[in-house]
Every structure is written in structure tokens, then in C-alpha cells.
């Protein structure tokens, strides 16, 4: 990768101190990897290995114990519009319409009304929500809500888009369609994406590279490059022997780690 590094994570370490018992929990052992501009990178790992924590540190919601995170060359401090977050449970503002949600970030940055509306219309079309502008989030289905969550972030044109299991609470059928929508959008817009998931198929289908973390205390176990051709869709990509090979390899990596973790009480 000699492209520009949109996101760089170096020797990230995080220890939580329990506010009541005073116990220390090592959430991230030592994690380093980076994401190039316009690249889609997924992070996979056993439950509780610190994926969400890494994402929260990049987003600026949580502070690391040590190590560094830089976005477009600048060290991260606190949340900011250069990193857009798509949350698992959407985190749409219930008191704002679809339009209000999509234009929120633009308004916060003082973008003029005409431009806001043009941008909103463009991204709503991209996620297939044209015609729903005046609805409130609770009037949308779960899949539509998450597409709105994606549009809201894309409209802000962040340097990096952070997604934490965005499709985990959505039914299998809809999830596949959203995954296809997401790779199409990625294809059209080429945002930089840092994607956390539990689903090996999803990670392989969407990503350029997959970072596999080990169990706690976590570190980068392996980074798997996914050189499947784009554009991708489930009918063709899912049938490719390459896809199956990658999926099996990553599944083995995760399984090996889990048995290892059981044997070694770290």
C-alpha cells in the first residue's frame, strides 16, 4: 500500500479501570494497522477482544491508554466531523425527519441551505430513500433506518467512515441487500471505511483487507488481503472459489485462536 494513509493505528493499548471495583481490564493489548485512502478494511475477532474499543478510540469517544491514532496525518483528539460513525442501533435523532438527520452534520458545519439540500437529495438517492424526506425515523423499517445512518455520515464527507456492526440487528435477507448497497456505494464514492463485524462472509464480501484480531489481550493476528474483483454482488462473488477459500481461511484463523484462548487463560 503506497497510497495515502487515511487512518493509521500504532501500538494501540487500552486498559479500562472499573469505576466501582477498581479492577483493571485489558481491552486492547497491542494493535497496529492502517487504512489507505479509499480502502475498505474490516476488523474481525472473537467477542470481547476490543473491536468496539478500537473503533471508539478512533472516533474519539474513548481515550487510549497508550499508542497513537492519526487520521489524514493528524493525531485524533475527541470526536470530530472528519470521522463519521455509523452506529449499530442507528442512533438517528428521533425528533428530526429523514431530511433533518441527513443535513444535520452539514448544518453543524455551517453549509448553506441550498447546498445542504442538494447534497441531502444526492445521498438519499444513493441509499434509495428518495421520497421519504419528511418521514420520522420511527416510521422507517430497520433496514431503511440503517441506510439513513449511512447517508447521514456520507453526506458529511468524512475522511474515514467508522462502522460498528451496522447490520447486526437486521434480518438476514435485508442484511444481504444492505451489504450489496454498501459495496455499490463504496464503488461509486470510494470513501475510506473502517468496518467492525462478527460475520466472516460480510467481512470478505465488503473488504479490500480483513484485520483478524486475536483473543484478549488482543493484537493483530493476521491481515488478509481480499483481492476479489469489483463490482461485487452475492450471486457471483459469493460463488467464486476465491471467496470460499478466503472465508474458510479466516474462519480457521478465528477458530484456531478460540481453542488457543481456551487452553491459555490469559
Amino acid at each position: 500500500m503506497d497510497a495515502v494513509r487515511a487512518l493509521q493505528i500504532e501500538n494501540l493499548h487500552k486498559t479500562y479501570v472499573d469505576a466501582y471495583s477498581g479492577d483493571e481490564v485489558v481491552a486492547i493489548g497491542d494493535v497496529s494497522f492502517d487504512v489507505a485512502e479509499g480502502e475498505f478494511v474490516s476488523v474481525l475477532g472473537p467477542s470481547g477482544c476490543g473491536k468496539t474499543t478500537v473503533l471508539n478510540i478512533v472516533a474519539g469517544f474513548v481515550e487510549q491508554t497508550s499508542g497513537s491514532v492519526t487520521v489524514a496525518g493528524k493525531p485524533v483528539s475527541g470526536p470530530g466531523p472528519d470521522r463519521g460513525v455509523v452506529f449499530q442501533n442507528h442512533a438517528l435523532f428521533p425528533w428530526k425527519t429523514v431530511q433533518g438527520n441527513v443535513t444535520f452534520g452539514l448544518r453543524m458545519r455551517g453549509v448553506a441551505k441550498a447546498e445542504r439540500e442538494a447534497t441531502a437529495a444526492e445521498y438519499l438517492r444513493l441509499v434509495g430513500l428518495t421520497g421519504f424526506e419528511q418521514r420520522y425515523p420511527h416510521e422507517l423499517s430497520g433496514g431503511m433506518q440503517q441506510r439513513l445512518g449511512v447517508a447521514r455520515v456520507l453526506a458529511n464527507e468524512p475522511a474515514v467512515m467508522l462502522m460498528d456492526e451496522p447490520f447486526a440487528s437486521i434480518d438476514a435477507q435485508t442484511r444481504r441487500r444492505l451489504q450489496e448497497d454498501l459495496t455499490r456505494i463504496f464503488q461509486e464514492q470510494r470513501p475510506t471505511v473502517f468496518f467492525v463485524t462478527h460475520d466472516v462472509d460480510e467481512a470478505v464480501f465488503l473488504s479490500d483487507r480483513v484485520v483478524v484480531l486475536s483473543g484478549r489481550p488482543s493484537s493483530v493476528h493476521e491481515i488478509v488481503t481480499v483481492d476479489l474483483p469489483r463490482p461485487r454482488d452475492w450471486r457471483t462473488t459469493g460463488e467464486l472459489p476465491q471467496f470460499r477459500a478466503l472465508r474458510n481461511r479466516i474462519t480457521d484463523l478465528l477458530a484456531g485462536d478460540e481453542s488457543h484462548a481456551v487452553a491459555d487463560p490469559a
Binding site: A59, G60, F61, G78, P79, G80, P81, R83, G84, V85, F87, N89, A91, F93, W95, K96, F104, G105, M108, R109, N156
Partner: peptide
């Protein structure tokens, strides 16, 4: 919900806007 506050903060919401657009309607 914390994610709503985080979403607002990650989009660069200032103090005054936070009051009118997030905290007040959220607490309604």
C-alpha cells in the same frame, strides 16, 4: 442514549446547537 450524543458530537455540534437540537428535544 449515549450513541445519540456521540453521533452529534462526531458531527461537530457546538454547545448552543447541542442544547437546542439534541439535549432539549432528547429530554422532551
Amino acid at each position: 442514549p449515549l450513541p445519540l450524543l456521540r453521533a452529534a458530537r462526531s458531527m461537530g455540534t457546538g454547545r448552543v446547537r447541542m442544547f437546542w437540537e439534541i439535549l432539549l428535544p432528547g429530554a422532551l
